[in-house]
Design a protein around this nucleic acid. Structure first.
Lengths: 373, 373
DNA sequence: ATTAGCACTCTTGTCCTTAGAGTGCTAAAG
DNA sequence: CTTTAGCACTCTAAGGACAAGAGTGCTAAT
């Protein structure tokens, strides 16, 4: 997969220049215009030869015989892996992002929403954020609050301070006290278990000793079980859908429709994002300047995206963490011709800022780490 | 506003035919093609004359001199007010919608989401749904649940069975008991008041007698106040954005962008929907066949929409109700050339189904009405 | 190995032409 | 007086020709 014969330095320069130009203009770039914009020490004819070779090697493509070249997926891949230079965000930008995320300290969903929103706003592309999966987090508390006869609110508190709740129907006959009894029986029996390990059976057996007729109990237990399980529901937040229409690759309505239709198909994107595994970059380009989190983002370019209808896009994602085992994903999707370095620096910073906030949120579980600081 | 000189019957027929055809084809309709598709008892020349008059009267427009006619805003207005025939949904359709909405009985937000989604799905346009405003609903309960030292969940129960909650920070020193004391003091003091009438001052005075130092109390009271107030936050749900790209009026990327940009601008749509007042239709066309809710939908066509960037659209909305005073809005937006009758029948049915569910949800408050049935 | 030069290719924009659909007007028919 | 047939006119949309421009590949000279 990775090229065995690395490109010589001149080819690298040229490839980088081509990708940079194409990202900037969306026009196929020719040898002449390349020479004009970049101070090369050789002529357009040389570039022509080199470009022909780069095309033969699969890094560039020609839309038609007498046009300039555009990068292929492989070309972009080489670019993001080896060639591009990552920029740091300006003070101004970091301040703006920090400020925007500061408000939503306490609520996980709110933070994710805002992170997604700011990411899209700042990069000019579309952003996706997946709420963290909770299956490996531990149940800490479960409370049931009587709303009115027949209805109750089940509140589930997970490790790392995540709180989820759900409104349920219960038998009308049940009173508030009985409800609390059941809840604390479940809590006593299950707290400390991971969501994955909790089943309807374990819930039922936890409440075995509650002195209530089964008929009343069963429905409540079932609802409690559902409430616990749904704490692990993945939620996908999308922001900045409109931004993509600004790019020429979406000016063809057919393509735009295809893209947005895919996006709207339920579960596709959530499922795909959930599948992606972080492959820490083999070479760790440009080590992060003293920041705690290593920038292990994941880039999928064009055909690498295993979703029909998104083959003309690129997708940069990363993982944010709540505590140690709970992780969600946030990412940016845009045309293949994406300003990768800009996106990467933004996504890294947003991830990092989220992690800081979430660490504070989860401090109940991680006091040790907090104190070491 | 309403035309003083109503159109004679023939003009009405022709206008209706033109609008119907244009809705179906998106092509300007000419006298000849009209005659072909509709069994008129007069010739194309007569139609030409009538169409010229309809244009003079402002019901039709000509994109250019030698093209067919398309309806003007006024033409559409006459169409929806007097000409179109409302269709009833097929058994199959009502079943499908009912089935889809049946799941989300208990949760208001879930129901609204689904209603919006099904509406967009079934009509093929974009749907908007605004969560109900709660300012005139009454506070029934307020509970505070300790999550961990320093964090609590405030649960607000409103009349009509609406439940909202919010995660807040509280002083670390406060224990669960004190928290409950404060909550029940607030509840005792404020329950029965409308959200509108509750202020930071009333919250504070309700908790005046709680035996806790002010320093601890103040933050909690403030958070309780915020939680109560945010129960009235309007939330806007949008669904089926992608659908509009299918219509030729959105094939011009410029227009599409303009539309979606407006949509994305925060608060614009929520604000606009919130402003719309139901004007019950003056003539109540096609009285609803034995259904409890009168079909008081509101239609805004083209320029009638007071939002820049949506002037090429039409907007059909209606109100759904939770209990007596709490109302939200749900609507469909699409090209001016919208299949009005289809949209209206769908929106009416969805509204009605929502109302049924919500009436059941709010039954605690409306047992009387329920029993009369 | 590099580059200048040149012939060649292919797209894009412009202009022109033509076909077709639709109109308005006039005059004849009912 | 209303309706309709007929006709000349208008305007768009589609197709073809043409020139300009950008880019290429190849060859020969440096």
């Amino acid at each position: 997969m990775t090229q065995k014969i690395p490109l010589d330095e001149r080819k690298q320069h040229i490839l980088k220049a081509v990708v940079d130009d194409y990202i900037a203009t969306a026009e196929p770039v020719g040898s002449k215009s390349l020479v004009q914009k970049h101070p090369f020490s050789f002529s357009s004819a040389t570039i022509r030869n080199e470009m022909a070779e780069l095309e033969a090697l699969g890094y560039l493509e020609q839309p038609h015989t007498s046009a300039g070249r555009i990068p292929s997926d492989k070309g972009y891949r080489a670019y993001v892996d080896n060639l591009m230079q990552l920029e740091n965000l300006s003070q101004e930008e970091t301040e703006r992002i920090r400020g925007y995320l500061r408000d939503s300290l306490d609520e996980l969903t709110g933070l994710i929403r805002k992170a997604s929103s700011v990411l899209s706003e700042e990069t000019g592309y579309m952003s996706l954020a997946l709420s963290p999966h909770m299956r490996r987090s531990h149940l800490q508390q479960i409370k049931m609050l009587m709303i009115e006869p027949g209805r109750a609110l089940v509140v589930v508190v997970l490790s790392a301070g995540v709180v989820k709740d759900r409104l349920v129907r219960i038998p009308e006959l049940l009173d508030a006290n009985q409800l609390m009894q059941i809840a604390s029986a479940i809590e006593d029996g299950l707290s400390g278990m991971t969501l994955d390990d909790i089943t309807l059976v374990t819930v039922a057996s936890a409440a075995r000793n509650t002195p209530l007729p089964e008929s009343l109990l069963n429905q409540v237990l079932y609802e409690a079980y559902v409430a616990i399980k749904q704490a692990d529901n993945l939620e996908l937040f999308i922001d900045g859908q409109h931004q993509l229409l600004a790019y020429p690759e979406f000016h063809d309505i057919g393509k735009a429709r295809c893209f947005y239709d895919t996006l709207a198909r339920d579960g596709i994107m959530a499922g795909y994002m959930n599948e992606i595994k972080d492959a820490p970059d083999p070479e760790q380009p440009n080590p992060p300047c003293g920041q705690p989190d290593k920038p292990s983002y994941m880039i999928r370019i064009g055909q690498e995206i295993a979703v029909d209808g998104l083959k003309d896009c690129s997708f940069v994602t990363t993982t944010y963490k709540v505590g140690d085992v709970i992780a969600g994903r946030i990412g940016v999707i845009g045309p293949r011709r994406m300003a990768y370095s800009k996106v990467i620096s933004h996504i890294s910073f947003v991830k990092q800022t989220m992690n800081e906030h979430l660490r504070r949120l989860a401090r109940g579980e991680e006091i040790v780490e907090e104190q070491l600081k």
